[in-house]
Amino acid sequence: MITVDRLTVSYGSFTAVDDVSFVAQPGRVTGFLGPNGAGKSTTMRVMVGLTPPTSGQVTIGGLRYHDIPNPGRHVGSLLDASAQHAGRTGREILTIGAQTMGLPKSRVDEMLALVGLTDAEAKRRLRNYSLGMKQRLGIAHALLGDPSVLILDEPANGLDPAGIRWMRGLLKGYADRGGTVLLSSHLLHEVEQIADEMILIGHGRIVAQGDKKSLLAHGDGAATTLVTSLDNAALGAALTGGGHAVEPLGEGLKVQATPEEVGRAALAAGVVLTDLRSGGAGLEDLFLELTSATAREAVPGVTPTPTGGIPA
């Protein structure tokens, strides 16, 4: 369990992390979302003791990182896959890690196999690695000590789609076995697929947190539904009659009502539905909306488009 308690990190007058508190629970994947420069990496660096906090603290399993004996055995972290000696081979990097943690050498081979780095690739020097290979090596390094807590900063960075799917399965399985997983991303669809809990951060402040459902419920209130039926005109009339605003959208209708209300109206009117889904601001819109005030670019003219997340 990772507990962040009123964490603040300031550099002079600039506050990178501003009074952030949250808990990452065991058995769950916690997604840490925010635009570039929102304070995600700084928060994660404080967790593993690389950056001193200005105030507040982070504990992992009740201990400050500094006080955890042989921390690599309890907390696996991947903060920057490139931060390794470029002249060492992948195998050497893992071997040094294993020796530092007092692990048997066989663990290195296990991890190389787990992340799918071949023997030939493991003998190459890091400077000749692609970003995706570095990322796999970094994940292998994080898992080396068989930790119960994983802290991963942008782990999907540079992975191909198959690699992202692989990692998703890996982390999900890890959390299902009782591990605590915290991963950061600036890409929502990367996180919403696996995260049980999401923490949205912008400008160093937490702007929202909760699971997907509760985050959406916190969205801008009025639910909208996208519906297509065999008789849109009749359905539209029934809904308008029921006091809901209706407007045509593409082949169907956009209704200011919950899917349930639309479904009942269709049932009552005897109209066959061919498509019914929540068209409320998707998580992506919520994410942009919540962080736009703090994002690097203002997001001009971002109107809620019913993407509902990009399937990956």
Binding site: V48, G49, H66, P71, G72, D80, A83, Q84, H85, T100
Partner: peptide
């Protein structure tokens, strides 16, 4: 110094925070 220019100090000091 090599550890600071190659940036693997990040890994070293994560595995041994002392």
């Amino acid at each position: 110094t090599s550890e600071w220019s190659q940036r693997n100090a990040l890994t070293t000091f994560t595995l041994e925070p002392h």
